[in-house]
Design a protein around this nucleic acid. Structure first.
Lengths: 349, 349
DNA sequence: TGTTAGCACTCTCGATCGTTGAGTGCTAAC
DNA sequence: GTTAGCACTCAACGATCGAGAGTGCTAACA
């Protein structure tokens, strides 16, 4: 048996219906659909075939059919069609960023919230992962600690506290910072070990401080649990698949553990676009979820954002929102590079 | 009618029972309790009185009684007795911090998680609010932006990005930072406006940059939405009062909005100890919750942590955990001030 | 006078059991 | 190949009922 044109169209109708209603779809519902032109009996036969092919499942004998994992996979890969976001919404999105000019983290937080609001699902985001460092600066904090600030091309920065061994003066720190900057500026993260090796030989005796710097740098380069943003986890409770409290709890617990989410996103970091459906996600409580991600770029840094919803997700809508957000964020974050001022040019409303 | 000694004892027994079982308490349950020595009939009469006094309510005729808001208030104020945390648990808590030495934010995150795990409720925490600034440093990021790092006595630091007007050189920034440091070092947050006024006159013409600095400083002094840590929100779903999905959703949504939580904690910041019960909390979905908070101190900075659970909360346990955490955190965070090294002294396993 | 045994009464909870309705699968006619 | 028709299945709903927990009241008791 083959999945011919007609079966394909029927499957599409079933998935579309199920996505909006969350109720098992019966043959009559489909046959009544505009442009279908087939009796319910015919649809029944086809549905029976589709079940045999593994695209549909029936919760029980007299309850209609629901799409299986395989159906969603097909839907995402071949059936669904993604439109651009309505211009009005796109405009709203742009406005959201127009007046923003705070820290990167602030931008990510509000972007994540916007994603969740616009899709009514949960959204997650990781900050752009640094690739090339532009400058390293050591700022003394107390007698025994200093702040190491690394600045990337685009002005993205990260900080971490390092411990200063006794005997290191403030002047020492400044020159150290300058030296580090000299060595490291413009080099890629992958070159880090080599650069550090080189630097090491010049740091006569300062083994402890060197170790601290090395550690911090490496930590800053790798995915940071702190940079995972989550918004709208509670929205999952609106969807009928989570009316069961046990399920909801299991999922929400996972959505709370930042390192699980970080791993999930890091795996997809750099991927232009990805969709993981139900059983493809192994995290606890996520078997009935899908995760759609896109990566965004800030200079040489690449971050990833995603939307988590039930497998019965409005994939088309979600994808167009994600694409729009990516575009807007790129525009909003790039100008930091230098050149022009970013004051409001045309007064709105 | 008065709340005599016996009524008091009976009320205590009822609350204790209800806190652990979450089920309406009947007269027989109480009369069978060790050391009560009264028949169920007597208890019934007393319970009837307690209801009239407003301490108890009955969900329906034949369902036993549940404590009212008033009962919890009395319980917290007069009945409950708080013990110290078992030494074994206290030791575990200390170990948690023993090896920590990262950024303040990391410490807060793990402390918040520990609070939630130990109580099985949701926990929230705000970072210590700065009072006196020790140093201000301006770190150039890109051509048009710089990072303003403020350092407090204890090495707590905060950063924010500021916009640099054209024509300001890097050297300019450094001297500006030094000047600001000179003016502001050791002064209290409340003096900020006065200090800035003074500084203003010396900043000939640099109105825009001045404005930026002023804004950032003020933003850093005020409660920062980003510094709210939440852990274990999903645990709320374990408690029977949230088996209703609608309720759960409403509560979890509130627990997700950081600024609501920030406000809640800031109101209590500096308070040694506070308990807000049910109707005293006006946030959406929190009418059946209680919030217990304690403040902790890092040098001159004061932060607040709290535990959110159902009004039927194990107040005694929660308070002893919070007190222990406060103590441990004070110990763990203070040494940063200067003096001694903080390498592991005794190697564990 | 306070305490308690006894009893009628109330109300929820859970189980049982038709009934209803949506939906299927099969068959036979078109 | 398509469709009308029909018997069949099964969850969902509602009504009914008994059990059990708990109360309030009364009358007896110390």
């Amino acid at each position: 048996m083959k999945l011919d044109e007609r079966k394909f169209r029927i499957l599409q109708a079933i998935i579309d219906d199920y996505i909006t209603t969350a109720m098992p779809v019966g043959s009559r519902t489909i046959s009544r659909k505009q442009g279908m032109g087939l009796s319910s009996a015919t649809i029944r036969n086809e549905m029976s075939d589709l079940e045999e092919l593994g695209y549909l499942a029936s919760p029980h004998t007299s309850a209609g059919r629901i799409p299986s994992y395989r159906a969603y996979r097909l839907y995402v890969d071949q059936i669904m069609r993604v439109g651009a976001l309505p211009t009005s919404e796109y405009a709203t999105l742009r406005k959201l960023f127009a007046r923003r000019m705070g820290q990167m983290e602030d931008v990510l937080t509000s972007a994540t919230q916007a994603l969740s609001e616009m899709t009514d699902y949960t959204s997650v985001m990781i900050a752009p992962q640094m690739r090339t460092i532009k400058r390293v600066q050591l700022v003394p904090l107390t007698d025994t600690t200093a702040l190491m600030v690394t600045v990337t091309e685009q002005g993205v920065h990260k900080e971490s506290v390092i411990h200063i061994p006794q005997g290191v003066t403030v002047e020492h720190l400044y020159t150290m910072g300058n030296l580090l900057t000299e060595k490291i500026a413009g080099r890629d993260a992958s070159e880090l070990p080599a650069v550090m090796q080189e630097f090491y030989s010049e740091m006569a005796g300062q083994r402890e401080l060197f170790g601290q710097l090395m550690d911090s740098l490496q930590r800053q380069m790798e995915p940071n649990a702190h940079s995972v943003h989550v918004a709208g986890a509670a929205r999952m409770l609106s969807h009928p698949e989570y009316s069961d409290v046990e399920r909801a709890k299991s999922l929400l617990s996972t959505l709370e553990t930042q390192d699980k989410l970080a791993r999930l996103l890091m795996q997809r970091n750099g991927l232009e676009f990805s969709v993981a459906i139900g059983p493809e996600l192994s995290e606890a409580g996520m078997q009935d979820c899908s995760l759609v991600t896109v990566s965004y770029r800030v200079g040489s840094g690449v971050g990833t954002m995603g939307v988590i919803g039930p497998t019965r997700m409005h994939y088309g809508r979600v994808i167009s929102v994600l694409e729009a957000m990516k575009k807007v964020m790129n525009e909003a974050l790039l100008p930091q590079k230098g050149s022009g001022e970013r004051k409001e040019e045309n007064n709105e409303e």
